[in-house]
Simulated scan of single mutants.
Amino acid sequence: MPPSNTPAKYRQIADHLRQGILDGTYPAGQPLPSEEVLAKQFGVTRPTVRQGIAELRAAGLVEVMMGRGMFVRSPHSRPSLTRPRGVRREPDGRYVEADGLRWESAEEPTATRTDAPLALADLLRIPPGEPMYTYAGLETAERGRLRQLHSTYVPFSVLLDTKYETEAPPPAPFLYTALAELGHELHFTEYLRTRMPLPDQAQALRLPDGVPVLHIVRVTLDQSGKPLALEQFHVPGDDLELSYPLDVGGR
């Protein structure tokens, strides 16, 4: 019997490739052996090879390019996907995401009533526990290749004396049009940080072990700076960069 401390096959593959990357056998920017070659070399299935590659991706040593294969990541290489962030208004009055992607909900969005937790209440400048309309779900784009978790929160107090006092407002981005029709001039602020996903988030986003998520919080404000709504986005952070326009301030 093999020693009990023998590494699992996927870890042997990861260690073999990691050593080759570090000693220059596989230079930056060069392709790695294919899944088929590695599977034959180690006598394993291709899913086992992918598990080993996932460790290297999580460590930032490898990038996988769709249709091209696996490559050693250069410290100067760009991610394979750049997504502009922001909201723009079309000539017909619709609000759309700046990335131009057509995001579709995996399930029909349904509004639920939730009470504002402390962190969200602070950003929305409402008392903790205030009721909110909430939408939350998985969204996909480009035929399911891109995935994100997207939640929308609208405090009840924002909707007092409007038609949405007795009916749920639409989720974002349709929410923006609804708020504009109520007479608000909309402005947006985003907060961005990285963190490790919760297990259910990793499963929904199909993340390999060790891959972080980008956690984006967007606050919609009126012309006076009062928060009207809040959104949370969780997107895979392994091979993605976000671009933001910067406004030049002035007197």
Rank of each mutant, 00 (worst) to 15 (best):
T134G: 06
D209Q: 15
E130S: 08
F42T: 01
A58T: 03
Q223G: 15
R125L: 03
L242S: 05
R83I: 07
P128E: 04
T189N: 09
L179M: 11
V37E: 11
R102L: 09
R102N: 14
G93A: 12
A202K: 07
L207W: 04
F174Q: 14
R113H: 07
P128M: 10
V96E: 05
I53Y: 02
S77K: 09
P208G: 07
Q12P: 05
Y133W: 15
T6R: 15
P236E: 09
H215L: 05
I53E: 00
A168H: 02
T194W: 11
V64R: 15
P91N: 06
A8T: 09
P7C: 10
T140S: 12
S157N: 04
T6N: 09
I216L: 13
A119Q: 11
Y10T: 01
L221E: 08
T189S: 12
R193V: 04
A58L: 01
D115S: 08
G86F: 02
T48I: 01
G249P: 09
R94V: 05
T25E: 05
S157P: 05
Q12L: 13
R94F: 06
P199I: 04
L149G: 03
T25Q: 05
P227Y: 03
L124T: 00
D239G: 08
V62I: 14
S243I: 13
G183S: 10
P27F: 03
E55T: 04
P227L: 01
I21A: 01
P91Y: 03
S224Y: 13
Q30R: 15
E104K: 08
T177L: 14
R218N: 09
S34Q: 08
L205I: 11
Y244K: 05
L17M: 03
T177C: 09
M1P: 12
V72M: 01
P128L: 04
L160N: 12
V158W: 04
F188E: 01
Y26I: 06
V154E: 05
M196Q: 13
R18G: 11
E108P: 10
G69M: 05
L205D: 02
E90P: 01
E185Q: 15
L149C: 02
T177Y: 10
V211E: 08
G60Q: 10
R251Y: 10
P109F: 06
P117R: 07
L240C: 03
A204G: 04
G69K: 08
T48M: 00
L246A: 14
Q232F: 04
P236L: 03
F156G: 03
V37D: 13
P199G: 07
A116D: 00
G86Q: 08
R94H: 13
A180C: 07
P7S: 08
Q19V: 13
A168Y: 06
P27E: 04
D23N: 06
Q148I: 08
V248E: 14
L17H: 00
V217D: 06
E185C: 12
V49Y: 00
G137A: 07
M65H: 15
R50M: 02
L22K: 06
R73H: 03
V217T: 15
T25S: 11
P91S: 08
L124K: 01
H187R: 15
A119S: 14
L118H: 11
A168M: 04
E55F: 04
R143P: 07
L242K: 10
A172T: 04
A106Q: 15
Q51D: 00
V219F: 07
P212V: 08
D238Q: 10
L120R: 08
A204Q: 14
P155F: 01
T152G: 04
L246M: 11
R206M: 07
S243K: 13
A58C: 02
P27C: 12
V37W: 06
S77M: 13
